[in-house]
Design a protein around this nucleic acid. Structure first.
Length: 511
RNA sequence: CGGGGCGUAGCUCAGCCUGGUAGAGCGCCACGUUUGGGACGUGGAAGCCGCAGGUUCAAAUCCUGUCGCCCCGACCA
């Protein structure tokens, strides 16, 4: 048992924080609510970026960058938007610092119009699109940006909700409502596929209720995931903004019929919150467990030796194994590479930047086992004199802690890839099974209350209604996570009002 | 922003009530013995006791303010 990690049963919140700390994913910053994403945490974000970015490009999008600061007046141009975000904006009111005469500094020039630090970029992007779009021939505009945003949240949690966070926000403008809707759903599918295929997190696609939708959107779609404590986590959103922002920012074009029309826009985003989801969906009481596709290191090799002779023998064996897995060129390149603290790194796959590490640190083997285990590395391989003599090695699988003795000659890239893919599939399957087992129904309000208290998702019929939702949240802590797509045709008797014709919804306590 | 807990070495914490030389375990460094799942011994480095005021001959300790963290709410990706 890990001595630096509380168990999930003991204290789930503490477990989450302990896992992050043990795996060195993030640290608290000196500024309230902000975090430092450490290299091992940032590598996860880079992996997410690489895969998602390709999916965006594959669907025709391009990247650009818009500024961090937004004129305060922009926010006010869309009524719902300002209402949704005003409360959580950080504002820049001054520029320059000057000496305050007491050995310190004070802000000097007050700005004529304050800037807000972007909480999201619909407004500034809308402003620019208005200038770029003149004709229907300029449409669609399909731009994404990777950036940071800031929301002055009252209560923060590493990765799940920090004041500043990293995300991507896609912003598109279209000629017709139908095209915008198609785009909104296309990107929701991109997110859902990504979550399942890459992060091994099963998600429910659905639509948000009026009270949960994005401020300024006509309709918001989302993917919802279940964490191991049964709580829901919104893992991504895609908004059809209708003509709301186009009207607020004058995104107009001359249409095919020679009349001026407003564009139809969408926006969609996922954030570093996904790293929180990754941790809470898969990790265990021993620490981080990473789905192989996300893992920066796919295998850690732990040499075992006593004497210099043994060390040389083991090193030669490991070199052969690395050459077989990563290639001779990479073995040579890896030897020349600077290595931090005795851990040498060899790229197993240059495209995904995933590597195999050899832990030559001057620690005991047991320490190294725990080290890589807590960091979620999918496979660990011990190589000692006994293994060199027998030609077999023991490969340990992080996902289920199983061990396998493998003939060294079978350690080929193909073999490792097959093993990695097998774990990827098993992890998705396990998470899906957990979610399904923790999804219940309810035919009455009492049953809804009882099942929500059990944790997990509750699928039931319900007429979305701002007041009823607020009341239910008050009484059960649960909110409508979405109206799931996979149940849209069915209607039934509302658990709250008793009225017929209610759509199916998912209730859950959410992060 | 409301309620609760807490800021003392890199980490976890004791000391505070009753003011008077700054402590432990883990980690870190050196050396030795070790090394197939978190080793042991010896020696060592390491702290403006969160920050700012106040009371006092004297403050980690008492008082005021402030900042931050964790948990529970409200808000939210």
């Amino acid at each position: 048992m890990a001595k630096n990690i509380k168990t999930r049963a003991e204290d789930y919140s503490q477990w989450y924080l302990d896992v992050i700390k043990a795996a060195q994913l993030a640290d608290y910053a000196p500024v309230r609510g902000c975090m430092v994403i450490r290299p091992d945490g940032f590598a996860l974000w880079e992996a997410i970026q690489r895969d998602l970015d390709q999916r965006f490009k594959d669907t025709g999008h391009v990247n650009a960058y818009f500024p961090l600061l937004i004129p305060q007046s922009f926010l006010a141009k869309e009524a719902q938007h300002v209402e949704g975000f005003a409360m959580e904006c950080a504002i820049v009111t001054h520029h320059r610092l000057e000496k305050d005469g007491k050995g310190g500094l004070k802000p000097a020039g007050e700005l004529e119009e304050p800037f807000i630090i972007r909480p999201t970029s619909e407004t500034v992007i809308g402003h620019m699109y208005a200038q770029w779009v003149q004709s229907y021939r300029d449409l669609p505009v399909l731009i994404n940006q990777w950036c940071n945003v800031m929301r002055w949240e009252l209560r923060t949690r590493l990765f799940l909700r920090t004041a500043e966070f990293l995300w991507q926000e896609g912003h598109t403008a279209h000629e017709t409502q139908a095209e915008a809707q198609e785009e909104t759903l296309r990107m929701l599918d991109v997110y859902a596929d990504f979550a399942e295929e890459f992060l091994a997190i099963p998600v429910v696609k659905g639509r948000k209720t009026e009270s949960e939708k994005f401020p300024g959107a006509d309709v918001t779609y989302c993917i919802e995931a279940m964490m191991q404590d049964g709580k829901a986590l919104q893992a991504g959103t895609s908004h059809n903004l209708g003509q709301n922002f186009a009207k607020a920012f004058d995104i107009k074009f001359l249409g095919r019929q020679n009349v001026i029309e407003h564009a139809w826009t969408t926006s969609w985003g996922v954030s570093t919150r996904l790293i929180g989801a990754l941790i809470m969906a898969h990790s265990d009481d021993d620490g981080l467990v990473l789905p192989p596709r996300v893992a920066p290191n796919v295998m850690a090799i732990i040499p075992i030796f006593k004497t210099d002779d043994e060390r040389a023998k083991v090193a030669a064996f490991i070199d052969k194994a690395v050459a077989a897995l990563c290639g001779e060129d990479e073995l040579a390149a890896g030897r020349k590479r600077m290595s931090a603290g005795g851990v040498t790194r060899y790229f197993f796959d240059r495209a995904s930047q995933q590597s195999i590490v050899v832990d030559w640190r001057d620690n005991r083997p047991g320490d190294k086992q725990f080290h890589w285990e807590q960091r979620g590395v999918p496979f660990r391989m011990e190589v000692g004199p006994r293994d060199v003599d027998s030609g077999n090695v023991v490969v340990k699988r992080r996902f289920d802690r199983s061990k396998e003795t493998v003939e060294a000659s079978k350690l080929t890239p193909k073999h490792l890839r097959t093993e990695l893919e097998a774990v990827q599939a098993l992890m998705l399957e396990k998470a899906r099974k957990f979610r399904d087992e923790n999804t219940r129904g309810a035919s009455s309000y009492d049953e809804l209350k009882a099942n929500v208290a059990n944790g997990g998702f509750v699928r039931c019929f319900f007429h979305p209604d701002r007041e009823a939702e607020a009341k239910i949240k008050d009484e059960t802590k649960a909110t409508v996570r979405c109206l799931p797509f996979d149940a849209q045709s069915k209607t039934g008797k509302c658990v709250y009002s008793g009225k017929e014709g209610a759509p199916e919804v998912i209730f859950a306590v959410a992060y």
